[in-house]
Simulated assay, not measured.
Amino acid sequence: MYYPLRYIEWSETKQMEVGEVYQIHSLSQEELFVHKLVDAVKLNHRIWVHVSHESIDHEKHTIYLRPFAEELPATYQRSLATTISGQKDYPNGLAPEYWLWNGTQFQRRDAIDSYVSPIHLALRLLDHYLVQQDITYDILYTVLDADRQKVMIFLNEVNE
């Protein structure tokens, strides 16, 4: 089954819709999960933060957005914006991309996996931590870069 998805800008100050940002006419259920589970989305080279999402009769889906702003700790804010905006590659389908905090900025981490199905990617987005080779990472933030079809997963190594 396939579903339409609308991205709508939301004004916190006015408590109302500002207008439609983007529309996707047909997404699989698994892809829809990924769209709804990330913290933010990059559409047409602009970063938007998810405010909330809803469905009407389980068929029509809407994600409410606001422009990317100061909702993250200052430590990560500038590096996140620079990293998200600076990527230019274009893969064929949804793929995860991992970014590790090095104390001053995010650096691309070697691929953990080359392909993850949309449902497995959605399952990964449900976790707060990622453990790889006995190293635990805190998942700080997730962004669907719709322009590149990448899910950017920002990590910080947890000191144990």
Rank of each mutant, 00 (worst) to 15 (best):
L94M: 13
P118Y: 07
E17V: 02
T13P: 13
D127F: 09
F154G: 05
Q23L: 08
Y98T: 11
P118D: 12
I63Q: 01
H61E: 09
Y141L: 00
S117V: 02
Q132S: 12
W101G: 01
K36A: 10
F33P: 00
T83Y: 09
V116A: 06
S114M: 00
M1P: 03
P67Y: 14
E97L: 10
I153W: 15
V49H: 09
A81K: 09
P96T: 01
H50T: 04
L80R: 02
L94Q: 05
D110Y: 12
L43G: 04
Q29I: 07
S52F: 08
D134R: 12
K150H: 15
Y76R: 05
Q107S: 14
V51M: 11
F68H: 05
F154Y: 03
S79N: 07
K14F: 15
S79M: 03
S79G: 00
E54L: 09
D57A: 06
Y7V: 03
H50G: 05
V21E: 02
R66D: 10
E9T: 00
I63C: 02
E160D: 14
E31K: 09
Q133L: 10
H61S: 06
V34E: 02
I56G: 14
W101Q: 13
H58S: 09
G93W: 15
A111P: 04
V158W: 07
D138Y: 01
E160A: 12
P118W: 07
E20Y: 13
V131M: 06
A40W: 02
V143A: 00
I84K: 00
H45C: 10
R66N: 04
L144M: 11
K14L: 15
Q29M: 06
H50P: 03
P73C: 11
L144H: 14
L5C: 10
K36R: 05
Y22C: 08
K14V: 12
T13L: 14
Y76V: 01
M152K: 14
K150R: 15
